[in-house]
Amino acid sequence: MVNLETLKQIQRDTLNQINLINTEETHRILIGMGTCGKAAGAKLIFDYLTEMKREYHYPIQICPTGCVGMCILEPMVEVIDRNGQHTVYINVDEQIMKEILHQHIKQNIVLDQYTINGVKETYES
């Protein structure tokens, strides 16, 4: 049973974990998994990431999350590193996720061509 003190304690601990302070993980990966994301295939990416983490012990924190609001760009994957740098990848599939793991997570190279800034006119039908 939590009371006011334990509530504060949980808040402090979880914030440290979210901000990757003193954790084994080096990156926090948010996957948009609302209905819009799932419909666009986010579940596949989530499964792929969990599989990769289990198999190769990538230092990542996988966090399924709700809708960010840009349903047309789903599946969206947001990578946050220890410096608090946010990188948002859009229209991600397994192949792109693989590249993100290899380049961004392992070598800290941001894949500009897949980010929300790099791709232009994606929503033009």
């Binding site: 509530l7 949980i10 808040q11 979880t14 999350t65 709700g66 809708c67």
Partner: peptide, 26 residues
């Protein structure tokens, strides 16, 4: 309204608490 959407894991109460969750009821 969407302050936490896309930021926290909705299946984790701890992450909600981390962003001032259940502070209002307290």
């Amino acid at each position: 309204v969407l302050r936490n959407s896309g930021k926290i894991n909705p299946e984790s109460i701890d992450e909600y608490i981390a962003y001032d969750g259940y502070q209002a009821i307290a």
